[in-house]
């Protein structure tokens, strides 16, 4: 069945673009799909959804195999991808630590502009969450008051020094003039679990990581760090509405190691475009508060990465690297 389908597709491709079809590149072995974060987090959920869609829609002759490499705030994954230079069978789903980790850890020896950009699948958002047991905290003001009262006893959970949530936490510390204790966990799912279990006091999780706990009434969002209220959270104010100038997004893009063959890049770009346009992906974006209007790819994505890397360097300079790494 699969063989037949592949044959039909190849035949069609042959008919459409006869000269190019002979050079048509396809994965010849399973594709390693690296996630630069732990299991259960936003990036993990996305990678596993994409992997499943690829299988279900039979888009690749070889399977995609998701592998979590969360070590050192993504350093492990980026080092791995760097070592895979020239390999056509490794891809990585990125977070913003893609920009921040190489800045904070300059001895890592990774230059992100060398990686091969494939496609920007979505822009993810952040909300501030507390456990719903905290009845005294109903909005941003009561939150700030509680944090100030608790001081360093206030525990914020996150996914690692230099990860986007630690940057957002540092930004909030600067904005509101308080200091908290930041505890790194191995992934967004573990952070969510620790918030629900009252092991930590607050967190800035992505919507996908808290969605199910929120629906079950275990946690509640206080503020969203977006320009406008997301359709999934119509009743939660944005920081801007409350007079706090904070807006922060996370890119969810797919990238390859340095020096991938152009034919492979083209094949993967088409694959992820198909996934991006699929009903399932668009539905996921809507339900989980992601923005998926159009997929940046190739040079556009490279330019996007370059700008974001610079913005993050400025941001880290502004809040201070010490504050983020907790040293």
């Amino acid at each position: 069945m699969t063989v037949l389908k592949t044959l039909t597709v190849s035949a069609l491709a042959l008919a459409v673009s006869a000269p190019a079809a002979f050079a048509e590149w396809q994965p010849r072995k399973p594709v390693e799909f690296i996630i630069m974060a732990g299991t259960g987090g936003g990036a993990d959920q996305i990678a596993r959804l994409l992997q499943g869609l690829i299988e279900q829609k039979d888009l690749s002759p070889r399977p995609f195999i998701p592998m979590n490499k969360p070590g050192g705030s993504g350093a492990e994954a980026m080092r791995y991808l760097q070592d895979k230079a020239g390999d056509n069978h490794t891809l990585m789903v990125t977070l913003n630590s893609f920009y921040t980790t190489p800045i904070i850890q300059d001895e890592l020896g990774v230059d992100i502009t060398e990686f091969t950009p494939i496609g920007l699948m979505a822009m993810d958002t952040f909300l501030l969450w507390v456990n719903s047991d905290r009845e005294d905290i109903i909005d941003l003001d009561s939150y700030v008051a509680s944090v100030k009262e608790a001081g360093l006893d206030w525990k914020v959970g996150g996914t690692g020094s230099g990860q986007e949530d630690s940057i957002l936490t540092a930004m909030m510390e600067n904005e509101f003039g308080y200091e908290v204790t930041y505890i790194p966990f191995s992934g967004g799912g573990t952070v969510a679990k620790n918030l629900v279990g009252n092991q930590i006091d607050s967190t800035v999780n992505n919507p996908a990581e808290q969605m199910e706990f929120w629906r079950a009434g275990n946690s509640k969002p206080l503020v969203q760090f977006t320009a406008e209220r997301m359709p999934a959270f119509p009743d939660v104010p944005t920081a801007k509405e409350l007079g706090v100038d904070m807006e922060y997004y996370m890119q969810r893009s797919v990238n390859g190691p340095p020096g991938m063959d152009p034919e492979a890049v083209e094949w993967y770009t088409n694959l992820f475009q198909t996934l991006f346009d699929s009903e399932e992906w668009q539905a996921f974006c809507e339900s989980d508060g992601l923005t998926c209007d159009n997929m940046l790819k190739g040079d556009e994505l490279a330019a996007f990465h370059a700008k974001a890397a610079k913005d993050h360097a400025d941001l880290i300079e502004a809040v201070g690297a010490d504050k983020i790494t907790g040293e």
């Binding site: 050192g72 350093a75 001895e107 890592l108 690692g160």
Partner: peptide, 21 residues
């Protein structure tokens, strides 16, 4: 390999990058 909290590489014998993993 990488320190699990700060993310810094540690115990990299002979400065071989392979040990980072």
């Amino acid at each position: 390999g990488f320190d699990i909290i700060s993310g810094q590489p540690r115990l990299i014998f002979f400065d071989m990058v392979e040990f980072q993993r």
